[in-house]
Each structure stands twice: as structure tokens, then as C-alpha cells.
């Protein structure tokens, strides 16, 4: 009830304290995922992004406070109930040895199956669609062990897509992917978002985050430093604050969203483009 009352959306965390045993990662953290948004979470390593996703998906029980899904405390819902509404791509996963691609993707259908309905028509159709969307159809019969890192990542994404949930949480979905596959995946997520799915992704590429996110959450030390539309909140000062990195921000020539150009510690030597190109050619001749 609280959710709709305050316009917080289907999924939000209210005053949660997240900890592993005695180590507290986030204290009294409140986050709301706007319905229908493409929310991206950014922040330095170990700041608690994955921990937050685990709490939002019921994998981690908050020490205090609660996560609300569809106006109910997520810990009151059954695992299967949650899994029909919310899918999670964990940061790292291990495939069982000797499993075929299609078999792994099919495991995403688990929350829709039962002892009596183990392989419905809908199961088969979702798996086929998910494999096509992530372009792993050609790998279908191959063993996951024998794929490249990027291929494997796309198979895991296909598995979460096959789960067909209205809310999708993805922890660094673009790791291991080459630049073309990264953009393709981001476009796919944007397309799913347009079709009405709420997307929450942890990303390390700030420029992807700014280009695709409708709602950006910047985290540091387990707390939220800023949130809102990327164009409104991303400043040189925020990047310095969150990552301790000096940068220059210019408009992205393609999307007109903020484009962060890191300065780094040292000033790079100024090299004319044409000379470097020639130097490259000379090296080739050797």
C-alpha cells in the first residue's frame, strides 16, 4: 500500500541496512526503482552495488528495513512468486559442467514450471525468443564450457530473458562483451524497456550509463550520492566525488547525453593524429 501511496513504484527498498555477518555495507539506505524506467547503478568497486541488487531480489535479507515488491515486503513472498516478477543476472555464475546452451537457457523457465508442467509450449517459445534476442541460437547445441567469455555471458543473459519477468535486474551484463556486443546488448535492454519492462543494471561504463539510463543512481560507500536523469546529475564534480577521478564532460556527439572523458593522473603527451597514423603504418611495414 505504501508503495502506490507515495508513488514509489513496484520495487523499492525502505531504510534497509545491508550486512554480511558483522560487516555493514549499507546503512539506512532507501532506493526506489521508478516503474518503466531504465535505471542504471554506478559506483566504484566494492561500494555495494551487487549487495543492493541482491537485497532487491530477495537473495540478501536486510538486517533492518525492508524491500517492497508490489506493495508487499519481498520476504513475505515465496521465492517462486518473486521469480515470476523479477529476474536477476548475478555478477558471476558457474554453469554445470557439460551443460548445453539451450539447456542452460531453459533453466530460466523454472518459476513458470511445476512437477506436472515441465516443458510447456510457452517455455519453448520463450527460450527460442531469448536465444534469438541475444544471438546465441547458433550456439544452441554447444557446451557452455566450450564457449568464449562473451558468448557465455550472452547465454546467461538469455537465461534471465527466458524468465520473462516485468522487472529485470542485471549485474554488469556487459562484462566480457566486445564493443559491438556491448552496444547490441544495451540496445536490446533499451528495446525491452520500451516494450514496458523495468530494467535495473549495474554498469561500469559511465558513458553507456548516461546514454541509456532514464534514471541514474550513483553510489559510494554503500550510500546513494546522487540520483536522477543522467543529464541533470552528471557533473565533473560528481565524477570526482564518486570515483575520485578528474574528468571533462562534453555532450555525447551521438546521443547528446553527458560524455565523460577521464583526465587521469598524468597529462597525456600531445600527439598529432596524422603523425600517429603514419607511425602506425611504419610499424606495419616492419
Amino acid at each position: 500500500m505504501t508503495g502506490s501511496q507515495f508513488g514509489l513504484g513496484r520495487l523499492h527498498a525502505d531504510n534497509v541496512t545491508l550486512r554480511y555477518d558483522e560487516r555493514t555495507i549499507s546503512r539506512n539506505l532507501s532506493v526506489a526503482v521508478p516503474d518503466g524506467s531504465f535505471t542504471v547503478i554506478v559506483g566504484p568497486n566494492a561500494c555495494g552495488k551487487s549487495t543492493l541488487l541482491r537485497a532487491l531480489s530477495r537473495l540478501l535479507v536486510p538486517a533492518s528495513g525492508q524491500v517492497i515488491l508490489d506493495s508487499r515486503s519481498i520476504s513475505d513472498l515465496s521465492a517462486k512468486d518473486v521469480a515470476r516478477r523479477l529476474g536477476l543476472l548475478p555478477q558471476s555464475s558457474i554453469a554445470p559442467e557439460g551443460i548445453a546452451v539451450a539447456d542452460l537457457v531453459a533453466r530460466g523457465r523454472y518459476p513458470h514450471q511445476s512437477f506436472f508442467r515441465q516443458w510447456s509450449k510457452a517455455d519453448e517459445e520463450s527460450v527460442i525468443a531469448a536465444m534469438e534476442a541475444t544471438r546465441v541460437t547458433d550456439l544452441s547445441g554447444r557446451l557452455v564450457d566450450e564457449l568464449s567469455g562473451g558468448q557465455r555471458q550472452r547465454v546467461w543473459i538469455a537465461m534471465v530473458l527466458a524468465q520473462e519477468t516485468p522487472i529485470l535486474l542485471l549485474d554488469e551484463p556487459t562484462t566480457f562483451l566486445d564493443i559491438a556486443h556491448q552496444i547490441e546488448l544495451m540496445d536490446l535492454l533499451a528495446e525491452l524497456n520500451r516494450q514496458g519492462r523495468t530494467i535495473v543494471a549495474v554498469l561500469h561504463d559511465l558513458n553507456h550509463a548516461c546514454r541509456y539510463a532514464s534514471h541514474l543512481i550513483a553510489m559510494k560507500d554503500g550510500a546513494i550520492v546522487a540520483e536522477g536523469n543522467p543529464s541533470a546529475i552528471v557533473t565533473e564534480r560528481l565524477v570526482k566525488d564518486v570515483f575520485g577521478l578528474p574528468s571533462v564532460i562534453i555532450p555525447d556527439p551521438v546521443s547528446n547525453t553527458p560524455l565523460i572523458v577521464p583526465k587521469g593522473r598524468q597529462v597525456a603527451p600531445v600527439v598529432h593524429l596524422d603523425t600517429s597514423a603514419r607511425a602506425g603504418k611504419e610499424r606495419h611495414r616492419d
Partner: peptide, 23 residues
């Protein structure tokens, strides 16, 4: 035999299995 499906699902790792609805 009734628990064979969740048992098999656990083989994809705890987090992935739990996120797909296994207690």
C-alpha cells in the same frame, strides 16, 4: 523424485537458482 527439479536448478549456483525461484 519430486525434488529432482529444484535439485537440478541448484546446480546453476546458489544466487542464480534462488533468483529463479528455488528456496
Amino acid at each position: 523424485l519430486f525434488l529432482a527439479r529444484p535439485m537440478r536448478q541448484l546446480e546453476i549456483g546458489d544466487d542464480a537458482a534462488r533468483a529463479s525461484g528455488v528456496d
